[in-house]
């Protein structure tokens, strides 16, 4: 009777590997971690943007040559898109019904987030390294 622990689990579910994915609260937790990180990051990045209001192209390029601006920019954009990915996932799961439609929407939105997020981050890297 050493298997009493598994008595509540459906054998089919066990075969299919269903049940806890051992991720537990990680989605909820990461949503909080990214939101806390974004408090100082967003303020710093907004300050950088503010310093560039009315600036011409050359001034913007000069600003992103500064490693502090580039690092804050990369961290902000990366955390921002991560936070958005976590948040929009919950919205989609709540409002898009039907497994196929839900998975397709999640796939499309995640793909768009990766493309746009990488474009933003690559732009900062290019400005930091460029002339």
């Amino acid at each position: 009777m050493g298997k009493s622990n598994s008595a509540l689990r459906n054998p089919l579910g066990r075969v299919r590997g269903l049940g806890s994915a051992k991720e537990g609260t990680s989605h909820w937790w990461l949503q909080r971690v990214t939101s806390i990180a974004l408090i100082p990051l967003a303020i710093l990045f907004l300050a950088a943007i503010f310093s560039l209001v009315g600036a011409d192209w050359a001034q913007v390029r000069t600003a992103f040559h500064n490693p502090f601006v580039a690092i804050v920019g990369l961290l902000t954009v990366g955390t921002l898109f991560w936070h958005f990915k976590l948040g929009i996932q919950v919205v989609i799961e709540d409002y898009v019904h039907g497994e196929a439609a839900k998975i397709a929407t999640l796939f499309a939105v995640n793909a768009a987030i990766y493309v746009v997020g990488l474009a933003a981050m690559l732009s900062i890297v290019k400005m930091f390294l460029g002339d």
Binding site: V60, F64, L80, V116, G117, S123, I124
Partner: peptide
């Protein structure tokens, strides 16, 4: 709205 932010960064790059 991050599309506008990304547009700004891309354009500057």
């Amino acid at each position: 709205g991050t599309l506008v932010l990304t547009w700004w960064l891309l354009a500057a790059a």
